[in-house]
Amino acid sequence: MAPQQQAPWRVTMFGGGRGAASIARRLLATPGAALTLLINGYDNGLSTGALRRYLPGMLGPSDFRKNLLLHLDAGDPRLALLERRLPGGATPADLGRLIDELAAAGPGLEPIVRDLKVFAARLAARPDGLDLADCALGNLVLAGAYLRLDRDFNAAVRACAEMFGSPVALENVTGGENAYLAAVKADGTLLADEADIVGPQSAEPITGLFLLREPITGPLTGPLTGPLTGTELARRAATITPNPRALAALRDTDLIVYGPGTPHSSLLPSYLTPGVAEAIAGSRAAAKVFVVNLRDDHDSQGLTAADLVGRTLTYLRDPGNERGTVTHVLCHGRTLPPRAGLPGARWVAADLEDERRPGTHSGARTVEALAAVRAGTSLARAG
């Protein structure tokens, strides 16, 4: 049954920066569908990492910025503005002149200008420590909102969602505590931060993820034995709390979707959040669907769909799927892949790829498949 024929339904989807964007956009265009996106803020690469170092305590804003813009048409000037990156050699004075230009551009940009001014004031007071080169303007807007709202990251995300008129309920999965992601591979190699996790690496699989109070620097970096690495990283663990809004969205929803994306940075770390596994187990959702990636990322090379589903279940503390953490696995293709099978879950094969963008999910086809899963599950329960 096509989504347009469905009764109103709530969808709560775990995602990252762009992996699930086509699915989210299609859900926004689906009558009756209300979407909550659950994201983590552990991004620490390049200009995002530089911004986090400049503002200690702040999570990475990039994935939130990308999802705040999902509803904007390609011709919307706010989209180009917030995705605009400052050039190499940009100075605080250059940023100030740009803000003045935006302030003079006319109505509609006042909230953006306000928060950019907040950030610019901080930069004027402490000009050292941040290279503005390649910084996305939208990240600086989020940073300004973060400073304006007493360094409350989740409040900044909500304020920016309202600023941009986003119809998505975009929630950080945690309470906003600062944390840094690290990983260990099977041979004991340490991936010291999120940028290493998503970057080129050996074919050895990642076997452990850690959320740390502080970024790793100094002699801990580099190849180490597994036990030594695990013990030391566990000692440095950050204290994380759940975002109550995220837990409520998981409990009170019709469909939970474990969206596509970079597994070991965008998705699996979110499942480490206390309370998330319990909220999923107690959810009223008719179905809990794992959407398989269409291609490997650097961090998932050599891992099959079954492997990634298994890791999801392990991180959600339901390795045998006894609590029904995953009810369906949705994969692209005409036939099921080898090793398709999981206690308590049904594997579904469908044509999910966007023909115009190979390796990317077609939003229309994937949402249609999700709607069919939900409808079939609801009918089965009713029968």
Rank of each mutant, 00 (worst) to 15 (best):
A29E: 14
N178H: 12
R339T: 10
R334F: 04
G359A: 09
R236L: 13
D351N: 12
S202Q: 13
E353K: 04
G108V: 08
A286E: 12
A183L: 04
T12A: 13
G383H: 11
S283K: 03
H332C: 07
D196Y: 12
A145M: 13
G60E: 00
S22C: 08
A287M: 04
A349E: 12
M163L: 15
L170M: 06
R65P: 01
R365A: 15
A203K: 12
A125S: 13
G320A: 15
M163R: 14
G261D: 09
L308K: 11
A145G: 10
L255Q: 10
I216S: 05
R235Q: 12
E353G: 03
I112D: 02
A286Y: 07
A286K: 12
Q201V: 01
G88L: 11
A169G: 04
Q6T: 12
N40Y: 01
D297P: 00
D76E: 09
Y42Q: 09
A306N: 01
P56A: 08
D94E: 09
L123C: 10
L181F: 02
S166H: 09
A382I: 12
H361C: 08
P205F: 02
A281R: 15
V329A: 03
A74Y: 00
G88V: 11
R245M: 03
R356K: 14
T48E: 00
A203P: 05
G138E: 02
A349W: 10
Q201D: 07
L336K: 01
D100L: 13
G230C: 13
A350I: 03
R114G: 01
T225S: 15
G218L: 09
D254L: 04
L303R: 14
P337S: 10
L303N: 11
R126L: 11
R126A: 14
D299L: 07
S378D: 14
V118N: 01
V113G: 02
H361W: 06
E162A: 15
A125C: 04
T335M: 09
A136V: 00
F164V: 15
R10I: 04
A350N: 05
G138N: 03
K66V: 11
E355D: 14
A286C: 08
R148F: 00
D254K: 03
R356M: 12
G106W: 00
V173W: 03
R236S: 07
G324Q: 07
C160D: 10
G32E: 07
A20P: 02
V157L: 10
I256V: 15
P227F: 06
L370E: 08
A277S: 13
V367C: 14
A277V: 05
P92T: 04
A372H: 12
A161Y: 03
D128K: 15
L212C: 10
G259C: 11
V113D: 02
H361Q: 08
A248V: 01
T48M: 00
R245H: 13
E368G: 15
F210Y: 15
R251N: 00
V326G: 07
G106F: 01
L379F: 11
R334I: 01
L267C: 06
L132V: 01
L51Q: 01
